[in-house]
């Protein structure tokens, strides 16, 4: 069935709310407004204000309340409008949610799901466009997911809710209108990366909003006689090293594509693992395409120049191929 990423997220949320009375959605403008990306439009009428809970602009407060409610036996889904705003809640996520199980000696798990939009591409400039998945992927005690397909948008929420630990789901803002096939029958696996296009010459390893760009680049490369494999990480913590290494062992070349800034990026971590675990399988040094290290500019041409694009991925892949 053809549907959109947004509709897939909606369907997953509705199913979760219908299936489990402990589930509720909380965040800024999730109710009367319908969600800043219209993901929860109509839910207020369907599920009522107790379970579709509009929160004041208190990210620290309502993310922390989500943690407390999870401790108290509920299964909250907290929506934070963008990853930039989530920085106001970073204390509760890092110091409490991720640490509580450990510092209580295993007594308290925090079964909380936090959804947030991330990423650039809509000329929203330097306070609404960032890609900070890497920061969260740095933290032990939480899991980080990046659905990049309609199927994952539909299928990742249920296993995230079933997970006893905090799970952060990054929805790239450029993907909400993505159309694709969803033949949802069961929750998807949230432990493994997935090959989205098989190829034999070079592995393009990416996640989230860069997946469509990598797939586009792979098509362009095919026209140049280069057969690229595209690996969608999907799960940013814990990283599925096995799938990354398996692909590199096959193609012997790797280009990591990551919308985060280059220094200290997730791409850097993926490359480190490739070097650690598949060094002697490499025919060329691994390369990466990341965002330029500039706060996101507003002007369209500058924003485009700052971000990974298919043309840059093609150029990096060709360089790795020596072409």
């Amino acid at each position: 069935m053809k549907t959109s990423y947004r509709e897939a997220l909606r369907a997953a949320l509705r199913e979760a709310l219908q299936d489990d009375p402990r589930v509720f959605l909380m965040g800024e403008d999730v109710g009367r407004y319908g969600g800043s990306y219209a993901v929860s439009k109509g839910f207020l009428e369907e599920f009522g204000p107790e379970r579709i809970r509009d929160a004041p602009l208190s990210e620290l407060g309502f993310v922390g309340a989500g943690i407390g409610a999870a401790l108290g036996g509920m299964r909250p889904i907290v929506e934070v409008m963008t990853v930039n705003f989530s920085l106001l809640a970073l204390d509760q996520i890092v110091n409490t949610a991720s640490a509580l199980r450990h510092m209580s000696g295993g007594q308290f798990s925090v079964p909380l799901v936090i959804r947030m939009a991330s990423g650039a591409g809509r000329q929203l400039a330097a306070q609404h466009s960032h890609s900070l998945e890497c920061w969260y992927a740095h933290i032990p005690g939480i899991k980080v997911l990046a659905p990049a397909t309609v199927e994952d948008a539909r299928g990742m929420l249920a296993p995230a809710l079933a997970d006893p630990d905090p799970v952060i789901i990054f929805e790239h803002a450029q993907l909400y209108n993505l159309e694709g096939e969803s033949n949802h029958v069961a929750p998807v696996d949230i432990s493994a990366a997935r090959v989205r296009r098989t190829g034999s010459d070079v592995s393009l390893i990416t996640y989230g909003g860069s997946l469509p760009k990598a797939l586009q680049a792979a098509e362009l490369l095919a026209g140049m006689g280069i057969d690229a494999e595209v690996v969608d990480l999907r799960v940013l913590r814990p990283l599925d090293s096995q799938s990354i290494v398996a692909s590199v062992r096959k193609t012997h070349r790797a280009v990591v594509v990551d919308e985060g800034w280059r220094s200290g990026s997730l791409a850097a971590e993926v490359m480190a693992r490739i070097v650690e675990q598949a060094f002697f399988d490499l025919d060329a040094p691994p390369a990466r395409v990341c965002s330029e290290e500039v706060p996101m500019p507003y002007a369209r041409h500058l924003e485009e120049a700052a971000l990974p694009q298919a043309a840059k991925i093609v150029a990096a892949a060709r360089a790795v191929m020596g072409k």
Binding site: P21, R22, F24, E50, R51, L60, G61, F62, V63, G64, A65, G66, I67, G68, A69, A70, L71, G72, G73, M74, P76, D91, Q92, N95, T96
Partner: peptide, 20 residues
Amino acid sequence: IVGGGLPLAVGLALADQLSP
């Protein structure tokens, strides 16, 4: 974390208010 427990308490109370 000074103040860190307050949102937690709010959430525990919210669970009590919401839970069956």
